[in-house]
């Protein structure tokens, strides 16, 4: 069986790239637009990489993703966002508020929001289909791969039914989605950001969900937590780099960002 399939694929050509032409080094950095978060990544989050924002509920994951979208839209006129909404929680008003607060004129806001495509997706199979269709989406809207950003909010809610099972075959979806993310970022060269939940067994320290297997999928993994001791505005959030392919683990640093009552980053960048 495997033999026939292998034979069908051969003869093919193997292509290897010389490391001097290494893709990521030449790519430009992606910024969240929040100086403290961008600071700890040191500009090493680049186009065509996969970044994960994980954290417990209300830890600022969606707000930080929105900030990244707004920053990308403002900085690059040819940028286009493919937003995959798994929980029906996308609220355009939030993006509108962030853009308006960043001194965009009403015309600019309209143009920016018109470059964010929203797809609601409720099953894993559908998500795979959407990820597969990214090349077609980019072609339809004439987006250069480097200017395309794919957001999945919240990835965990689709994958959760397949994690923690005793049967090995349950992991095939995890594997397929992992591969698809690799395809979108690696082969298509698009930037991918997804949010994931985090759990805690003692109420103090958090670990990302989706298990050990998944930890090799994202290039950068940021853990967000909310400072619960102080509930007054501006709200304070912690960010920790759990993994980054660009730096050794002992260099991983933590930072803090703040949100004022309207959900704007404080102090304003």
């Amino acid at each position: 069986m495997l033999h026939t399939r292998l034979r069908a694929n051969l003869p093919g050509t193997l292509s290897a790239e010389s490391t001097t032409a290494c893709k990521f080094q030449s790519q430009k950095s992606i910024l969240f637009g929040c100086p403290s978060v961008d600071g700890i990544l040191g500009g090493e989050f680049r186009c065509g990489q996969v970044v994960e924002l994980c954290g417990p509920p209300l830890s600022g994951k969606t707000q930080l993703s929105m900030k990244l979208i707004a920053t990308a839209l403002q900085e690059n006129e040819s940028c286009r966002i493919f937003f995959m909404d798994t929980c029906g929680q996308f609220n355009p008003q939030r993006l509108f508020d962030i853009l308006s607060a960043a001194n965009c004129t009403p015309d600019e806001v309209q143009r920016h929001l018109g470059r964010v495509d929203i797809a609601r997706v409720s099953t894993c199979e559908r998500l795979l289909q959407l990820l597969d269709s990214c090349s077609d989406w980019a072609a339809t809207h004439a987006v250069a791969p480097g200017s395309a950003i794919v957001i999945i909010d919240i990835l965990h809610s689709l994958l959760a039914p397949f994690v923690g099972g005793k049967s090995f075959s349950d992991y095939r979806f995890l594997n397929a989605v992992g591969q698809a993310l690799g395809y979108v970022s690696g082969s298509l060269g698009m930037t991918v950001l997804y949010t994931n939940s985090a759990f805690s067994s003692d109420g103090r320290s958090y670990s990302p969900a989706l298990g050990t297997y998944w930890s090799s999928i994202p290039h950068h993994r940021l853990l967000l937590t909310r400072n619960k001791d102080d509930e007054s505005f501006p709200l304070r959030f912690g960010v920790v780099v759990l993994r980054s392919i660009s730096m050794p683990s002992h260099k991983h640093t933590a930072a803090e960002f703040q949100l004022d009552m309207e959900g704007h980053f404080f102090p304003n960048a």
Partner: peptide, 23 residues
Amino acid sequence: GYSRNEVPSWMQARTAWDLLQEQ
């Protein structure tokens, strides 16, 4: 239905601006 690499028909192509107007 799962094979095509094109944007699937069930996806309603709407931008954030469209959604904001609807809201």
